[in-house]
Design a binder for these strands. Structure first.
Lengths: 220, 220
DNA sequence: TGAAAATTCTACCGCCTGTTCAAATGCACC
DNA sequence: GGTGCATTTGAACAGGCGGTAGAATTTTCA
C-alpha cells in the first residue's frame, strides 16, 4: 500500500546522493529497537508487526536484531518494563508524601497523565498488547498493574477517611474512573496540539475534584 | 493435538449416544461466529486468534466458517458494526431530547457505560483492534467514532452556553475524559461483581457533575 | 597496519496462517 | 424413499512468520 508513494518519491529524487528512506542515524541498540518497536506496535499491533518491519524501520536486516534481543516477545517485555520504570516509583513517592489527599490526587493525576501523554506509543502497547504476554511475566505485569491501581485507590480512601472527600463514593470505582480518564490520553493525545500534558492533567484534576456543574453561588 | 483424546474418548463411550466435548448447541450462523470471535479476539487479540481457534470454539472446522463469512477481516468488521449499532442511535436520541444539559449528560454516561459493560468483549475489540481495519472501512469507523465523541462534546458545550456548567473547561477535553472513564470499563468490569453497570454509571455521573471533594457546607 | 572482536548480512528452515474447492454429508419436502 | 438444496468436511496451497547459523563486514585498539 505504500509502494506507490515510495516509487514516486524515489523517481523524484533519483539523482540525489542517497536519501530515499530516512534511515535513523542512531546506532543499533536494544534501546533503539525497543523505541522503534513500540512505535510500530502502537500503530499496527504486536501481531501484525514483523521483525522485518522493525528491521526495515531501523535500516537493518532482521538478523541484526537478534544480536541485541533474545526474541520478539522480549521486545514486548522491555516495553512493559520501561512503562513501569517511569510510572511506579514517582507515584509511590507521591503517596508517601505529607501532602493532603486532594493535593496527592492532583499530583498523581498530573504524573499519570504526563506518562500517558509523553510515552504514548509505549503506553498504548502497555494497555493494548498485554494479551500477548505469557507465563510468569504476564502474571507479574498484571500484579504490578493492580498494585498501581491500588495506590490511586489508597489516596481516595485516605481522602474519604479524613473527610476531605465525599462519603458516598466507592474508592475503587473512582480510582478506575480517574485512571481510565488518564489512560485514554494515549488514544487521542498528539503532541503539538492546543494543550500540553500538564494543562490536560490540570484540567482532569479540576474535573475529578469539583466536576462540571457550576456551583449555584459561583460567579459567571 | 486433540486426536489422541478424541480417540480415547470415542473408545470409552463407543456405545453411548455421543457426549464428549461440550460443543455449543447453537446452530452455526454469522451471528454465532461473530459473538464467539469477539470473545476470542478480546482475550487473545485479533492477530493471535486463528480461524482454527474460532472453528474449534464453535465445534466446527474452519472451512465451515467460510460458508457464513467472506474472510477473517469481515468478522472484525461485523464486530465493529454491532458496537456502533447499539451505541449511536440511543445517544443521538438523548442529544435530541428536551432534557437539560446536565440530565442529557447523565443519560449519555449511563448509556455509554452500559454499552461498555454489557458488550465488554466487543467493546474491547472495538478499541484495541481498530488498527487491523484497512481501507475505506477503517476511515468510516474513525469518522463515526469521532462523530460519537462530538455528540458528547456538544452536550458539554450546551451546558457551558446555558450557564449550567462551569466556564473554565474545555468541552473537547472534558468529553475525552468522560469517554475514557466509561471506555475503561470494558478493561476492568466483570459481570456479577459488587456493582452493576447502572450503579457504576450513576457514580460516574456524580463524579463528572460534582467531583470528589466534599463541599464546605455539606453534612458529613 | 593488522588481527581480534563486535556487529550485520544472507540464506535457509519449519511451522502456521488465511483461503479455496471438490467431495461428502445432513436435511427438508414432495 | 428419494431428490435437491444447504451445510460441512478435509485436504491442499501459497505466503509470511519467527528464528538460526555461518559467512561477510565493520569497528576497535594494540
Amino acid at each position: 500500500m505504500s509502494e506507490k508513494t515510495q516509487l514516486a518519491a524515489s523517481a523524484r529524487s533519483n539523482r540525489k546522493v542517497e536519501s530515499k528512506e530516512e534511515k535513523p542515524r542512531v546506532r543499533l541498540s536494544q534501546q533503539a529497537i525497543v523505541a522503534t518497536a513500540a512505535d510500530l506496535f502502537a500503530r499496527k499491533g504486536f501481531g501484525a508487526t514483523s521483525l522485518d518491519d522493525i528491521g526495515e524501520a531501523l535500516g537493518v536486516t532482521k538478523g541484526a536484531l537478534y544480536y541485541h534481543i533474545k526474541n520478539k516477545e522480549e521486545i514486548l517485555k522491555l516495553i512493559f518494563m520501561t512503562v513501569l520504570a517511569v510510572s511506579e516509583e514517582p507515584l509511590r513517592q507521591i503517596v508517601r508524601s505529607e501532602a493532603s489527599p486532594a493535593e496527592k490526587l492532583n499530583r498523581a493525576i498530573a504524573h499519570h497523565a504526563a506518562v500517558a501523554a509523553d510515552r504514548s506509543p509505549a503506553m498504548t502497547v502497555f494497555y493494548r498488547e498485554d494479551v500477548h504476554l505469557t507465563g510468569p511475566f504476564a502474571r507479574e505485569i498484571a500484579a504490578r498493574k493492580k498494585a498501581y491501581e491500588r495506590l490511586f485507590e489508597g489516596i481516595i480512601e485516605e481522602g474519604i477517611r479524613t473527610g476531605q472527600f465525599r462519603q458516598d463514593i466507592d474508592p475503587k470505582i473512582a480510582a478506575f474512573g480517574i485512571l481510565g480518564m488518564c489512560n485514554w490520553l494515549s488514544e487521542w493525545y498528539r503532541p503539538g496540539r492546543a494543550y500540553n500534558p500538564q494543562q490536560i492533567a490540570a484540567f482532569f484534576s479540576r474535573l475529578a475534584e469539583s466536576g462540571l456543574v457550576r456551583p449555584e453561588n459561583s460567579p459567571l
